[in-house]
């Protein structure tokens, strides 16, 4: 240790009154709703829509799939309150919305990786408000994906189901996609960087095949079908199509709820780990 004097502030020298008002903690306000606001929502949406890869992958691919698969033979056969084309339309909307929500979810991990989340922690933004805004953006993007598939389906003119079924299944599908927003956050942490969607894209397509989104499970061999019941797309697909089919096995509901809880827990677990490190 050196003999340099440890400078200590003389008590009398501290300014007592000449502090500008704005620098006084008492004169400062907290933001309303923890920083939840429309400016951020608007910018976040614009970012998603500007990303060409997201737009192609999530808005165009599902619609194109519907056009190709939806024209197969037997589209006019009856399923529940509608026909096979309607069944495929709901399935494809679910696939598109799940992919979109997952893409939105991966942004959270990407933003952490580049230090944006740390930057946000230097603002009054409440973490709950942040996640809420991200969830809303995921929901909006999911709704957009569902709308695109529905518009394409209507213009194709093959799908038939009562209007209330049409609307109800769209709404149910929308909320099912939150599962995949959480999955996106989770996978984003496990596989950081630009590669996240390269895993999630094919991964979700595979899960959709397994879960009976593209092809009904009744056409699968018993072995495959027994595996399918356990995969994450199966439950939400059955739930989303229930307004049309009026057929909802209890284990499909259990599947949907369990995977939702699992993905949210996984995302929360990775996020809290990440925060602890920062």
């Amino acid at each position: 240790m050196t003999d340099l004097p440890m400078t200590d502030l003389p008590m009398t020298d501290l300014p007592m009154t000449d502090l500008p008002m704005t620098l006084d903690p008492g004169a400062r306000q907290l933001p309303a709703m923890g920083g939840f606001n429309r400016t951020v929502l608007g910018i976040e949406l614009r970012r998603m829509l500007r990303n060409r890869r997201t737009v192609v992958l999530t808005l165009i691919v599902p619609a194109a799939l519907l056009l190709s698969i939806g024209s197969q033979r037997g589209w006019e056969e009856t399923v529940g309150e509608g026909n096979v084309a309607a069944y495929l339309l709901v399935s494809m909307a679910l696939y598109g919305a799940a992919l979109t929500a997952a893409a939105t979810g991966t942004m959270v991990a990407m933003e952490r990786a580049v230090g944006w989340s740390r930057q946000l922690r230097l603002t009054p933004l409440n973490p709950v408000a942040y996640i809420l805004m991200k969830a809303l953006v995921a929901l909006f993007m999911g709704a957009l994906a569902i709308a695109v598939v529905n518009v394409v389906g209507v213009s194709q003119g093959k799908a038939q189901m009562p209007t209330h079924v049409w609307v109800l299944s769209a709404v149910v599908t929308l909320f099912c996609t939150l599962t995949f927003a959480a999955l996106g956050v989770f996978v984003g942490y496990l596989v950081p960087g630009e590669n996240t969607m390269q895993i999630l894209g094919p991964g979700l397509a595979l899960l959709s095949f397994l879960g009976g989104v593209f092809i009904p499970l009744s056409q699968y061999a018993d072995v495959v079908r027994n595996i399918a019941y356990w995969t994450p797309m199966y439950g939400v697909a059955e739930v989303a199509r229930a307004p049309l089919t009026h057929d909802l096995p209890w284990y499909a509901v259990v599947n949907a709820v369990c995977w939702f809880v699992l993905f949210v827990a996984g995302a929360a677990w990775r996020m809290s780990k990440d925060t602890a490190r920062a």
Partner: peptide, 24 residues
């Protein structure tokens, strides 16, 4: 901070507006 903390796909104005919207 010296590095990081910015999103490449946002414009300069969006970055400032985003941050500004979070304060009272």
């Amino acid at each position: 901070m010296q590095t990081g903390g910015l999103l490449k796909d946002m414009t300069v104005r969006e970055t400032v507006a985003y941050t500004a919207s979070l304060f009272a």
